[in-house]
Design a protein around this nucleic acid. Sequence first.
DNA 1: GTCTATAGGACGATAGAC
DNA 2: GTCTATCGTCCTATAGAC
Lengths: 175, 175
Amino acid sequence: MAKPTAKERILDSYEEILIEQGPGGVTLDAVAAHAGVSKGGLLYHFGSKEALVEGLMERLATLSEADLKEAQKAPEGVVSWYLRTAITDVTERKALHRTTMATLRIMLNEPRVSEVVQVYNQKVHDLISEHVDDSLTAELVILVGDGLYLRAALGRDDASPLLDRIDEIKARIAR
Amino acid sequence: MAKPTAKERILDSYEEILIEQGPGGVTLDAVAAHAGVSKGGLLYHFGSKEALVEGLMERLATLSEADLKEAQKAPEGVVSWYLRTAITDVTERKALHRTTMATLRIMLNEPRVSEVVQVYNQKVHDLISEHVDDSLTAELVILVGDGLYLRAALGRDDASPLLDRIDEIKARIAR
DNA sequence: GTCTATAGGACGATAGAC
DNA sequence: GTCTATCGTCCTATAGAC
């Protein structure tokens, strides 16, 4: 990781500032300074603030797709994988988690973001549905997973004790 | 509701702009214009942008407390109430929902906000715990509720079919 | 209690040199 | 591909009239 391209560094910096300071902290000056380029340099790679959002969404889509492939290969099964990674996300899916946390800061008011997130959510839903017996079970798995994720997003890492009880949770949820 | 005070109207407008346009859309000019007062008029009631956040948090605390009392009186029981209102929040807890949606826009990067939300979350947790038999059940009730709430926040109202299956959900979750 | 006017600063984006 | 310099806009907050 000695020399990521300037474009990558700029996107990294955009994520970082989004996470640390929120949308209000994102100025072209701040992102450029953090990435070690000038404002003009930044604007060569991303011609506007909107282009930064686009760049973040492309990264999110790429990482999400890779993550989905990972899920399908999981030896523990898709359901356990989904619940487990919702808890251990921070440590295990570092890049995706980071991009997701950055995305969360702008999600509610950027239509383009909602689209990308929705597409991925639907794919997860379909994948889970294929691996459980009825629709209510699928719903509950996803709801519990989302609840766990919300905790992580709000900075509460008190979900880790649940890690040892995933089988128990599955047993209760599944018909 | 003919004539709310100017202060209330300003807070209403602040919520509205936060929900519609996000933090970036909140300018003193925009809030003042929406509330039908001048910028000077706004600044008499709320001396700074930070004071608007404070005002929103006071409103959130007040509405949350009232909501919690409502929960304790619910004839259906606290658990069913919690799951049901997570689904029907938009229609039934209008004022609180609106304030919560506005709060969501600034939550992740305003420390003062996280505090208020955390306090209320803890009270809900304690209340649920009192009404179920074991801690895992309490966790699952809250996680499913949070998952449902996340859907509402993301604008997906596809949770309504679950409204008829609350008893079924409870039966699966509870030991 | 609400207004206008304005000071003073920060921001996004452009133009053009290297 | 990256830089400096700058323009025009928009913002928060203050001062003081009504």
